[in-house]
């Protein structure tokens, strides 16, 4: 850089370049008073701000602890004009509308999804549910229904008897939407009354503890041996636990009066049953008294 250029950059010494010298000590009483007033105002302002922020924080915290769910943080939206309902079973869109009741112009954001979900799961026929909003005005409900494996007929004071459906997890439910033809194909369950317990409200029954052990047998038979399963009419069990040496599952079919299974290795037992029934003596018999498959490698059969 040339000397001339350097000179161009030199700032002329004007009063504006004189940096003010401040003294922490007030130069006059007036300034002292003014500083005191400013400091007082500053402290007062800061105190008010702190108070306001604290109040706001406590208010938000209180709201968060109490009823956040009721707060409308999104604002108004359109009323629901469409409900999409999907189910894995016989429950349909009509059933859901009846179950839900009138919407009365409720907007999509006003629907309490958690509560709706909770209420759906109270229906014993429904094992899981998924509810979502599809903006601007569609409510989407997807449910998975329990699959009935057995029918349990129980006496009822008013109606004489009632048929309860039994799912693979042991749940008992009345069942809706099933056709009579479909229900006829489901075997009946016959167990001692001592194994059936009512729910505390007396309106339903607790899950049957033995069913989860029985269910794999029925599922396997229905899937791999439908010609056998089709003939099964009554299923009963007694202490059906695989660590119980006396445990057994008894099935009555139209042709065989009594088939006894041990609650373990159902595939092997069903394979033997099929083999046995293909034997000429058994295949030609119009009825069979009993087949006991519960004794390991030995099968006891009586025509």
């Amino acid at each position: 850089m040339s000397k001339a250029k350097k000179n161009d950059l030199v700032m002329p010494a004007t009063w504006r370049n004189l940096k003010p010298k401040f003294s922490r000590k007030s130069s006059s009483r007036v300034v002292g008073r003014k500083r005191l007033a400013v400091a007082a105002r500053f402290i007062f302002g800061a105190a008010i701000l702190i108070f306001l922020f604290s109040f706001l924080y406590l208010q938000i915290d209180k709201d968060a602890r109490t009823d956040v769910g009721k707060k409308d943080y999104i604002g108004p939206s359109l009323p629901i004009n469409q409900i999409v309902f999907r189910s894995s079973g016989p429950l349909n869109h009509e059933w859901f509308l009846n179950w839900l009741g009138p919407l009365r112009g409720s907007s999509l954001v006003e629907v309490d999804l958690e509560k709706l979900h909770e209420n759906l799961l109270k229906e014993e026929q429904i094992s899981s549910a998924r509810i979502s909003r599809s903006f601007p005005s569609t409510l989407v409900v997807e449910i998975k229904e329990r699959v009935p494996m057995l029918v349990l007929r129980l006496s009822d004071k008013k109606k004489g008897y009632l048929d309860w459906l039994v799912s693979s997890d042991g749940s008992l439910y009345r069942g809706e939407g099933y056709s009579k033809g479909m229900l006829r194909l489901i075997p009946s369950l016959h167990i001692p009354a001592s194994l059936i317990e009512k729910t505390p409200d007396g309106k339903g029954f607790k899950k049957l503890k033995g069913i989860p052990v029985v269910a794999p047998l029925l599922e396997l038979a229905r899937r791999d041996y439908p010609e056998l399963y089709r003939d099964w009419s009554v299923v009963s069990y007694n202490r059906p636990y695989d660590n119980d040496p006396g445990a057994s599952i008894t099935i009555k079919s139209n042709r065989i009066n009594r088939i006894r299974f041990n609650p373990s290795n159902y595939a092997n037992q069903l394979k033997r049953l099929r083999y046995l029934l293909d034997e000429p003596n058994f295949s030609q018999a119009s009825s069979i008294h009993s087949i006991d498959l519960s004794h390991g490698r030995s099968v006891f059969a009586k025509i």
Binding site: A13, W15, L18, P20, K21, F22, S27, S28, V31, K34
Partner: peptide
């Protein structure tokens, strides 16, 4: 004189005022 000018300016600055022009 720089010191005389500075003292003059300081009187305004100490009161919390900007000097718009001298």
């Amino acid at each position: 004189d720089e010191s005389a000018i500075r003292m003059n300016l300081d009187l305004a600055h100490n009161y919390g005022l900007e000097v718009a022009d001298l």
